[in-house]
Design a protein around this nucleic acid. Structure first.
Lengths: 198, 198
DNA sequence: AACGATACGGAGCAATGTTCCGCTTTGTCA
DNA sequence: TGACAAAGCGGAACATTGCTCCGTATCGTT
């Protein structure tokens, strides 16, 4: 047996348009549901949110882990792409940074859930984590630099450090309903601001 | 309101004998089931194994986490107490160490499961983890020292290091049925052995 | 022995996971 | 364009599991 299947140059007749659409819809819907109900949200709920049947989900993502991983990658991508856009449209670099961090926090919910969904397959998880850093650190750096150059925040904070800090603040997100990571992150950012000239 | 309830010096009429018995039975049964089916084993299964009804489990341990934590402490205790006993009864210190490590691995299944069951409450988990180290490192050290003194293994290995290594080998235990941590740990121990005088 | 407190068991209900198959949509080819 | 096969969809139906509730059994005390 030479090589593995799937080769055979054949285009394999690319997927149908509706299937592709559904896949996107599902990723978005799942991401949203994960934020509100955690990564263990009932499949039914995700299906309802996406407006599709459960069978559809199972066809695209046979396993919950599959779905979570897919959402994860999707989110990393979205987060990465959002950076420049926010920077271009926001009132100020700091405002852009704030908005980006907000997206980032949503994303962390998935990320942390992923760690559980993948409990054990640590090698696979590490791979995703590397991808995550490679992709997002530059974006975050760019936002930070812009804010520094605009004189809005003090220099010296590294993106990696900031992201790590935010990530840690978001641990334990669903154990205590009174624990609100966003509030704490807000404090963090405020602490980063350069003292206003009164 | 002075202090919190529960005080009132009263013995509060200690638990009934059968309740105590059942609690022990449950801890043992749950530990066994955790090893074979993981910490997410159906409550029914544990109840059946223990020969009690599900209601009994829920009365003693309202939450799955409660049960896992209880088993965890129970296991730490058992592991700690087993050390000296094994040392006294085994053919050689190294044999004792082997047997102890075997118990330890069983225990790790619970421990790793616990980390998930407690996902989020990291402070509570840290407390248990400290307890775990405080209690077991001395025992492991004693076993190691004995084997070193008997000339069976080479010196220089710290208990903490060994336990950590074994712990890491046991990660990913249930992702791949072909992955057998015990086999790898066995290799580790073999590597620790002092080369036999041929 | 009698009685109140405590604990037990497991049927039953609700929530969720997963499968399966008839129906719909899509893409292709004449 | 019309027809047809393949691909995909939806959601009912079944399977599994969590959790509660209450009649019954057991225990400890008087």
């Amino acid at each position: 047996m030479p090589a593995t299947g799937q080769s055979e140059g054949r285009p394999a007749r690319s997927k149908r348009a509706d299937a592709l659409r559904n896949q996107q819809t599902l990723l978005t819907a799942a991401a949203a549901v994960f934020v509100t109900s955690g990564v263990n949200a009932p499949i039914r709920e995700i299906a309802a949110r996406a407006g599709v049947g459960m069978g559809t989900i199972y066809r695209h993502f046979p396993t919950r882990a599959d779905l979570v991983v897919a959402v994860y990658r999707h989110q990393v991508e979205a987060c990465a792409e959002a950076g420049p856009t926010l920077l271009a449209n926001a009132d100020s670099p700091l405002a852009a940074l704030r908005q980006w961090v907000d997206l980032f926090i949503d994303f962390l919910v998935t990320k942390h859930g992923l760690a559980n969904a993948m409990q054990s397959d640590s090698s696979g998880f590490d791979a995703l984590h590397t991808y995550f850093l490679d992709r997002l650190v530059p974006v975050c750096t760019q936002l930070l630099d812009a804010a520094v150059n605009a004189g809005e925040i003090r220099p010296g904070m590294h993106a990696h450090e900031l992201m790590r800090g935010i990530g840690n603040l978001c641990i334990g997100h669903d154990s205590d309903p009174r624990y609100d990571p966003r509030r704490l992150v807000e404090l963090l950012l405020r602490g980063l601001q350069r003292p206003q000239s009164s």
